Amino acid sequence: MQYKLVINGKTLKGETTTKAVDAETAEKAFKQYANDNGVDGVWTYDDATKTFTVTE
């Protein structure tokens, strides 16, 4: 399945996608991506759209 990440950071904004077997695996990949880019915020997930959002 394909999952999307929407980033609403202080210095980084945008979107990225990943393919993963489940939401938990996608979340780990997205959190690593956010961490690598210095984004630390509040996470939400919408199962209907398979979209994670992180807001600083």
Rank of each mutant, 00 (worst) to 15 (best):
F52V: 01
D40P: 04
Y3E: 01
K13T: 10
A48I: 11
G41Y: 03
N35P: 01
D40L: 12
A34N: 03
G41A: 02
G41C: 02
Y3I: 02
A23P: 12
K10N: 10
V54R: 00
K28M: 10
K28I: 11
A20V: 04
A48R: 10
N35C: 12
T17A: 07
A23Q: 11
K13W: 09
T49I: 06
Q2P: 07
G14K: 13
V39P: 02
V6A: 04
L5M: 05
V39S: 03
V39M: 06
D46M: 04
L12V: 12
Y3N: 01
D47C: 06
T17F: 15
W43E: 00
L12N: 08
K50W: 06
V6M: 07
N35K: 15
Y33V: 05
T49Q: 06
K19S: 13
F30Y: 02
Q2G: 06
E27W: 15
I7V: 09
D46E: 07
Y45N: 00
G9N: 05
T55A: 05
G9T: 15
K19E: 14
K28P: 02
N37G: 05
V54L: 10
T16W: 15
A29I: 15
K10H: 12
T11I: 11
A26R: 00
W43P: 00
T51Y: 03
A26H: 00
T53Q: 05
D40F: 15
K4S: 07
D36H: 08
M1P: 08
A23T: 10
V6R: 07
N35H: 15
T25Q: 13
K50P: 00
K13F: 11
A23C: 12
T55P: 01
K31T: 05
E24F: 11
G38S: 06
T49Y: 05
A26G: 02
D40R: 14
Q32R: 11
F30I: 02
A34F: 03
A26C: 02
T44D: 09
T18F: 13
T11Y: 14
D36P: 02
D36G: 06
T18I: 15
D46W: 03
D36M: 11
I7F: 07
K4G: 04
N37H: 15
T53A: 04
V54K: 01
T53K: 05
L5K: 00
G38M: 07
V39N: 03
A34G: 03
V39K: 02
A26Y: 01
T18K: 06
Y45A: 00
V6S: 04
G38A: 06
T55F: 07
E24P: 11
L12S: 08
T16I: 15
Y3S: 01
K10I: 14
Y3Q: 01
A48H: 10
F30P: 00
E56K: 04
T17H: 11
A23R: 14
F30K: 00
K31W: 07
E24T: 11
M1N: 14
T16G: 05
K28W: 09
L5I: 03
T53V: 07
D46C: 08
F52P: 00
T25I: 06
T11Q: 10
Y45S: 01
F30M: 03
T44F: 09
W43M: 04
D22E: 04
E24I: 12
T53W: 08
Q32P: 02
Q32I: 11
K10V: 13
D47L: 07
T18L: 15
M1L: 12
T49M: 06
A26I: 02
A34Y: 03
T44P: 00
D22Y: 04
T17E: 08
A20S: 06
Y3A: 01
E24H: 12
T53M: 08
N35Y: 14
T55V: 09
E56R: 03
D40C: 12
K4L: 09
E15M: 11
K19H: 13
N8T: 07
K10G: 10
T49A: 07
D46K: 03
G14V: 14
K10Q: 12
A20T: 05
A34M: 07
Q32G: 05
G41S: 02
A48L: 11
L12D: 05
T55L: 05
D47S: 12
K13D: 05
T53S: 06
T18A: 08
V21E: 11
K50E: 03
K31D: 02
T16P: 03
D22T: 06
K28D: 05
T11L: 11
Q2Y: 14
T53G: 03
V21G: 10
A20N: 03
T11A: 10
K31H: 09
G38C: 08
L5N: 01
F52G: 00
D22S: 10
N35D: 11
L12P: 04
L5G: 01
A26W: 01
Y33C: 04
G9P: 03
V39T: 03
A23E: 07
T25S: 13
E15Y: 12
G14R: 12
L12Y: 13
Y45C: 01
K13L: 08
Y33M: 05
D46R: 03
K19A: 09
E15F: 12
V21W: 13
A20W: 04
F52K: 00
T53H: 06
F30D: 00
Q2N: 12
M1V: 13
F52N: 00
K10W: 10
Y33P: 00
Y45T: 00
E15W: 14
D36S: 10
G9W: 07
F30E: 00
T11H: 13
V6F: 07
G41Q: 01
G41D: 01
V42D: 09
F30A: 01
A26N: 00
T51I: 06
V54T: 02
V39H: 04
G41L: 03
E27L: 15
Q32S: 08
Y33Q: 03
V21I: 13
Q2M: 15
G38T: 04
K19L: 15
Y33T: 03
T16D: 03
T51R: 03
T51D: 01
N37W: 13
Q2I: 15
A20E: 04
K28C: 06
Y3W: 07
Y33I: 06
T44C: 07
E56A: 07
M1Y: 14
A26S: 02
Q32F: 05
A48F: 11
W43G: 00
T55S: 08
V6E: 04
D40S: 13
T53F: 09
W43L: 03
K4I: 12
T55C: 06
G38F: 07
N37P: 01
D22A: 04
K19M: 15
D46N: 09
A34D: 00
T55M: 06
D47N: 09
T25G: 09
G9R: 04
D22C: 05
M1H: 14
W43A: 00
Q32L: 10
D47H: 11
K31Q: 07
V42I: 12
F30Q: 00
K4H: 11
A23G: 04
A20K: 03
K28L: 11
Q2R: 11
T55H: 08
T49D: 04
V54S: 01
G38K: 08
I7G: 02
A48E: 13
G14P: 05
G38Q: 07
D47W: 08
A20R: 03
V39G: 02
N35G: 08
T51F: 02
Q2T: 15
D47A: 14
I7E: 01
D40K: 13
E27V: 07
A48P: 06
F30C: 02
Y45V: 02
Y33F: 12
Q32K: 14
K10E: 08
K10D: 06
A23L: 12
T17G: 05
K50Q: 09
N37E: 07
K28R: 12
T51E: 04
T44L: 07
T25R: 07
K10L: 14
T16V: 15
E24W: 12
G14I: 15
T51L: 04
T25K: 06
G9Q: 05
D40W: 13
G41M: 03
A20F: 09
T53D: 03
L12R: 07
K28Q: 10
Y3G: 01
V42T: 11
E24C: 12
K50F: 10
L12M: 12
T44G: 05
E56V: 10
K31E: 03
Y3R: 00
D46A: 04
